[in-house]
């Protein structure tokens, strides 16, 4: 790379750079318009007492001080982390299992791939509404089904207590999203050369050994991508808890984004909502950096 650059006549470089800039200009414009500008505006808003209706007032870091003592937000964040761990493990485990199942061509495999991927194209709101209806104790399907199977005598309201409600929603998310992770991991699996496995098989390695020592290390990159996407997505969870549980029972399933939504559009405190958003963004950045660092250190040590 370095050698190559030396060969290029130096006077031609500036022009090439300008052309390069031109090529990426649309991308830069998009990032500036839809990320940088809103981000700066959010930061600006977060320094104000900015009601939805009425006059705004500069309060410096006042919102951030309030936030420090806002138990509601920290509780919501704690719940979000708990949910993220549960959902990420579920998504990656099921996604990987599905990927292993549909990786190699065989009769009917396209049907399976399509079937597993299909829920991904359903909108989150639609899937949540569907689930809300299915889990309704009076008009839904789950409770009568449980009664029919003899699991419960009286009608069982899945959404009345935290534990069943939480796992029911997490299950919905895994059902809906694992097809997406299946696709990412499947492309990784298909890139693993078949002769590695063949060689290992000749040496007498079991399926588990081959999975552990060949497959897993070689799909590290797609796995890391899947991990970051799953963690980020779950940390930003909102729709499913809003639509199916309305944050209940007893506000135990209010996520961080849900709390921000409530502050901004129920309590009409836009400035405070902006401050919360900035903090959540910071937390997500740190989480992603840590994950990337872990991935890199793994590669160095190989």
């Amino acid at each position: 790379m370095t050698a190559n650059r030396d060969i290029v006549p130096s006077r031609r470089r500036p022009r090439r750079q300008w052309i390069g800039l031109l090529y990426i200009a649309p991308a830069i414009a998009l990032v500036v318009a839809f990320f940088a500008v809103p981000l700066v505006m959010t930061a600006w808003m977060s320094l104000h007492n900015w009601p939805l209706i009425g006059r705004r007032r500069w309060i410096g870091f006042g919102n951030y001080l309030t936030l420090w003592n806002d138990h509601g937000f920290w509780n919501a964040l704690q719940f979000t982390v708990f949910y993220t761990i549960a959902a990420t493990i579920g998504l990656l485990a099921v996604g990987l299992a599905l990927a292993l199942f549909v990786e190699r061509p065989r009769p009917g495999v396209n049907l399976y791939r399509t079937a597993f991927f299909l829920p991904v194209v359903v909108g989150f709101a639609s899937a949540s509404l569907l689930w809300a209806w299915l889990s309704n104790v009076d008009s839904g399907l789950f409770s009568p089904l449980a009664q029919l199977l003899g699991l419960t005598a009286a009608p069982y309201d899945l959404n009345a207590d935290f534990t069943p409600a939480f796992w029911s929603v997490t299950l919905m998310v895994v059902w809906k999203m694992s097809g997406f992770y299946m696709v990412i991991l499947m492309s990784g699996l298909q890139a693993v050369p078949a002769d590695y496995h063949e060689a290992a098989r000749i040496d007498g390695a079991t399926w588990l050994q081959r999975f552990r020592y060949i497959t897993l290390p070689l799909i590290r990159r797609p796995l890391a991508l899947a991990l970051i996407l799953a963690v980020t997505g779950s940390m930003l969870a909102f729709d499913q808890f809003y639509i199916i549980l309305a944050g209940g029972p007893q506000n135990q399933t209010v996520t961080a984004v849900y709390w921000i939504f409530n502050q901004s559009f129920v309590s009409f405190r836009l400035g405070y909502g902006a401050a919360l958003s900035m903090v959540l963004l910071g937390i997500l950045l740190i989480l992603s950096l840590v994950q990337l660092r872990l991935l890199r250190s793994g590669e160095d040590g190989r």
């Binding site: 309305a246 944050g247 209940g248 029972p249 007893q250 506000n251 209010v254 849900y258 409530n262 129920v266 309590s267 009409f268």
Partner: peptide, 20 residues
């Protein structure tokens, strides 16, 4: 003046108290 926070919000104190 804070009817929405207190009463209408699914996560406000009125609804949380009653639903419990």
């Amino acid at each position: 003046v804070v009817f929405n926070d207190l009463i209408n919000s699914a996560n406000g104190p009125w609804n949380t108290t009653l639903s419990k």
